[in-house]
């Protein structure tokens, strides 16, 4: 694979114009993701209403792979139920683990990130947002009103 095949127009478009990059006033769930090895950092805000993701946004900095992954994530999970979101998280991470397969029906546009698998050092750039979402939705209670910082996941 040459890197031209990985850095597709879809990834570059999301990198240059990330969707839903903004803070959120009253999120129900928040989590921070940080990869101290490379410096990728994000804060994910989710608003869950009636078991559904009514709104999702993020702030943070990272490489093109990381930014595209989180940008597409926010588009894909908005409107999903928590169960559906869990399934999508598992499908995405499942695509990037060793011997993992991509479920194209479920993942849709996210399959553009499949090529990252060949660059071992970069897999975490793509998965950090998804682990962070998992933590925000299914970690211990993060809806406590005083928990401004939320939970934190640190990938090593």
């Amino acid at each position: 694979m040459t890197l031209k095949d990985l850095y597709t127009d879809v990834i570059l478009d999301h990198y240059k114009n990330p969707r839903n990059r903004r803070e959120m006033e009253d999120p129900t769930n928040v989590a921070n993701g940080h990869n101290p090895l490379c410096g990728d950092k994000l804060k994910l805000y989710v608003n869950v209403e009636n078991d559904k993701i009514a709104d999702i946004s993020f702030i943070g900095q990272g490489c093109a792979i990381h930014t595209a992954s989180i940008s597409i994530l926010t588009e894909k999970v908005k409107g999903l139920t928590l169960d559906e979101a869990k399934e999508l998280i598992e499908s995405f991470i499942g695509m990037l683990i060793e011997n993992g397969e991509a479920d194209e029906d479920k993942l849709g546009e996210l399959v553009v990130l499949q090529g990252v698998k060949e660059l071992h050092a970069r897999v975490k750039c793509a998965t950090l947002p998804w682990y962070t979402l998992d933590l925000a939705l299914f970690g211990e209670d993060v809806s406590a009103e005083d928990d401004i910082k939320g939970l934190e996941i640190r990938l090593k």
């Binding site: 890197l3 990985l6 850095y7 990272g62 490489c63 093109a64 792979i65 990381h66 050092a121 970069r122």
Partner: peptide
């Protein structure tokens, strides 16, 4: 981003 640079 430098990580993308280094990968390329």
């Amino acid at each position: 981003h430098p990580h993308d640079t280094a990968s390329i």
